[in-house]
Design a protein around this nucleic acid. Structure first.
Lengths: 235, 235
DNA sequence: TCGACCAGTTTGGGATACCAAGATGGTGTA
DNA sequence: TACACCATCTTGGTATCCCAAACTGGTCGA
């Protein structure tokens, strides 16, 4: 269920177009975390009337990429607490999903996922690797045949996507992540649920630990760049 | 985090009021599953202009209570597949959340939850019990201190809430569910993560199995009442 | 100098009007 | 009788316009 979603690509609706443009702008940090957004400002910047602007903002809100701030809107800040919490959610949902996938995914499904993974092998430039990683986790979850789980994973990956610009990822670390994905896939191929869940859980946990440590250390510098980075509460 | 949410109760905004009225109407089956909704129809019925009507519909959509159907809107149908999938999601998320709660919840938090549970003891009338059950699961999840997990659980409970009108629940079955909640709470009090997770997972699974079996058997009758009930795909 | 108050501006919430695409229904033809 | 076609109506999408609340500056008084 919900395998790849070819997308009907409603290029028509202004709301749709605007939503996608705003979404990209947020994810690429063209709109900075914490930045104030005004409907009239966006109306002017994107040459659309307030009606689609408001609709797009509401969609961004439901994706967690924009928030209300009093009466107005802001780009969702980077929230270290949220990042940690999302990792916990992902560990719970993704490990459960991969266990279901072990039982439910067809060999063809698994091979398609393997192909996706292989195609990202020559881990492209900087951030392309992380985007590919997000896709992998989403597609892997979809093999569970469970749409709400898949949505939860994709939603979490979306909320986490901006961190790819904030984290220093070396070619080695990307290679390492890719290898871990490959190991999970191997366990899935072998229909070994325990092993697949164990590897996936460890991968999510360790990747997150490195990310949070890095962001916490860089918080001052990131804020200096104008990004709103909310601190982690006392653990 | 996100303990009870006292709600600022923005009684002001028409959008807010309309959203809550529509939400109640959907959850109470005043608006039947699968029923077509038109913005102009709602505009007339609820005495508000299309702007807040559309905003409210978009919020309902993000909660999964309304859907787009081509160009228009419908009340989300009852989908047996979705119900099963949500149970799987809940099992994954709630068991992980209760494990976190075992570590993080304060004694006071736990006692507050116990109080909530006790207050629903004389399991009121028919559906009141199920609503209380949903609240319990949401509050329990919130003791994890993990907002995304809590949101996921509350969202799932919302999507499942309408089933309370479709399922025959005897005083005995409600008493049984209440007892299982109490057992989970006892394990949480004892700070026994494995036991709490085991009990909670079993509770979610068994409750769901009974529900799905019941709905599948009654599908014909329910459809006769005008409810759109989508069948389960082949397992 | 510091702070409270006030006019002007900005902003989101809401109400409407218009439009094009889709759905409806009826009619005329084969 | 059955089917195709066209006028009409309905509906969501979009563009504006008005309003009240919130915000901004700046001035005046203690």
């Amino acid at each position: 269920m919900t395998p790849s979603i070819p997308q009907a690509a409603d290029t028509s609706s202004q709301t749709q177009v605007l939503f996608e443009r705003l979404r990209s702008a947020v994810l690429n940090l063209d709109l900075m975390p914490g930045q104030r957004l005004t409907e009239r400002g966006l109306e002017a910047s994107y040459h659309a009337s307030r009606t689609p602007v408001r609709a797009a903002l509401m969609r961004l809100e439901s994706e967690g990429l924009a928030q209300r701030d009093g009466r107005g809107w802001i780009v969702a800040p980077i929230d270290l607490d949220e990042i940690g919490a999302l990792a916990e959610l992902r560990e719970a949902v993704e490990t459960a999903a991969v266990r279901l996938a072990v039982v439910r995914a067809s060999d063809a499904d698994i091979e398609a996922l393997a192909e996706l993974l292989e195609s990202t092998r020559p881990v492209g430039d900087e951030e392309e690797g992380v985007r590919a990683g997000g896709d992998f986790h989403g597609e892997l979850a979809s093999l569970s045949g469970n749409a709400p789980m898949t949505d939860a994973v994709r939603g979490a990956m979306t909320r986490l996507a901006r961190t790819r610009w904030l984290e220093v990822r070396t070619p080695e670390s990307r290679e390492h992540a890719w290898a871990e994905h490959r190991a999970v896939l191997a366990a899935l191929r072998a229909r070994d649920a325990d092993e697949a869940a164990r590897l996936l859980g460890a991968h999510i946990r360790s990747t997150n630990e490195r990310l949070v440590a890095h962001l916490a250390a860089d918080r001052r510098r990131l804020r200096a760049r104008g990004l709103a980075v909310l601190p982690a509460a006392t653990p």
